[in-house]
């Protein structure tokens, strides 16, 4: 290919223009986290594994009743995950310590949607069915959902579940943070209301963070110095304090950067003003044009 002076300037001009557009479009990613959301602080040292939160959750959200067994102990034999029929489940882990009767001391862990401050599921949702509300809840609107299940792939905690058994009107199911209840004045989530030992403390996230740090400071031997959810994936509305390291309790080890930051930065800088497709197809067009010219010439010669 012969690079003529004219073509060179054309190409450089186009590239220069697109590069000039780039910095203005790739603005620094900004968090859309609500400033003063509600949250829950789960104190794993308080939880005694009564599973009343599961009961309350199924009542409030009209789910099938949670598994019952005769002594409420075999249910912990297997690690469970939240699914379309249970928005929250309690699992049992062992600390490795023994009590006075030489019985292993259990640690119970309640899991549910963490209601991230910058939720990956909301970022991944292509129709806006999932939204982060001002009060902290990651809210799901079934009327908008098209069932692509990107949220399930995006969630770093693997929380959203899908009603695979329902072929006509399947829904994505996850903890609602009792959105309707907490939207009312003085409303509380079902699990926090029923908890007999206040292992779940409901309140403003900022207050709860202070509270969690105060508990750790006042009892440094009792807690590990880590508020899970303070910084994980940019912070979550649900926070945990524990006597055991969170890695031993099956909590995922996550970076402090919000998950949507990288994906949205890439996407927004690539597709702002459609510069990258324009450039790509421009380049392809240029190459096509050039190679067509090149191919045309021998034919012309051959024909002559």
């Amino acid at each position: 290919m012969q690079l003529t002076r004219r073509n060179f300037f054309k190409f450089m001009g186009a590239t220069g223009a697109s590069v000039a557009v780039l910095p203005s479009s790739a603005q620094a990613w900004q968090s859309k986290a609500p400033p003063d959301p509600y949250g829950c602080l789960v104190d794993l040292t308080r939880c005694n594994g009564c599973r009343k939160c599961e009961d309350a959750c199924s009542t409030v959200n009209e789910l099938p009743p949670p598994i019952k067994d005769v002594c409420d102990c075999t249910v912990f034999e297997k690690k469970r995950r939240p699914d379309e029929n249970a928005f929250t489940v309690v699992n049992r882990y062992f600390s490795g310590k023994l009590d006075e009767l030489d019985k292993p001391l259990p640690v119970f862990v309640k899991i549910q949607c963490m209601h991230c401050q910058d939720p990956a599921c909301v970022s991944a949702c292509i129709v806006g069915a999932l939204t982060k509300k001002e009060n902290g809840a990651v809210h799901y609107d079934v009327s908008k959902c098209i069932g692509c299940r990107y949220c399930m792939v995006a969630c770093p905690f693997e929380i959203p579940a899908y009603e695979y058994h329902d072929p006509i009107t399947p829904r994505v199911r996850k903890c609602t943070f009792c959105f309707d209840r907490i939207s009312k004045d003085g409303g509380l989530p079902g699990c926090a209301t029923i908890c007999p030992v206040e292992a779940i403390t409901f309140g403003k996230r900022n207050t709860l963070l202070e509270l969690a740090k105060k508990r750790i400071k006042d009892n440094p031997g009792k807690y590990v110095d880590h508020v899970y959810g303070e910084k994980e994936v940019g912070g979550t509305s649900w926070l945990y304090v524990s006597s055991l390291p969170f890695s031993k309790l099956n909590f995922p080890q996550l970076p402090e950067k919000p998950s949507p930051k990288l994906s949205e930065t890439i996407q927004h800088s690539l597709f702002s003003y459609l510069w990258s497709p324009i450039l790509l197809f421009g380049l392809l067009g240029g190459i096509m044009y050039k190679s067509k010219k090149k191919n045309d010439n021998p034919q012309d010669k051959g024909g002559a």
């Binding site: 926090a192 908890c195 403003k204 709860l208 509270l211």
Partner: peptide
């Protein structure tokens, strides 16, 4: 009452 916003460290009566 549980979750008194003015006294977050104070647990409710039931707890």
């Amino acid at each position: 009452d549980s979750f008194n916003a003015d006294h977050p460290e104070r647990i409710g009566l039931k707890a």
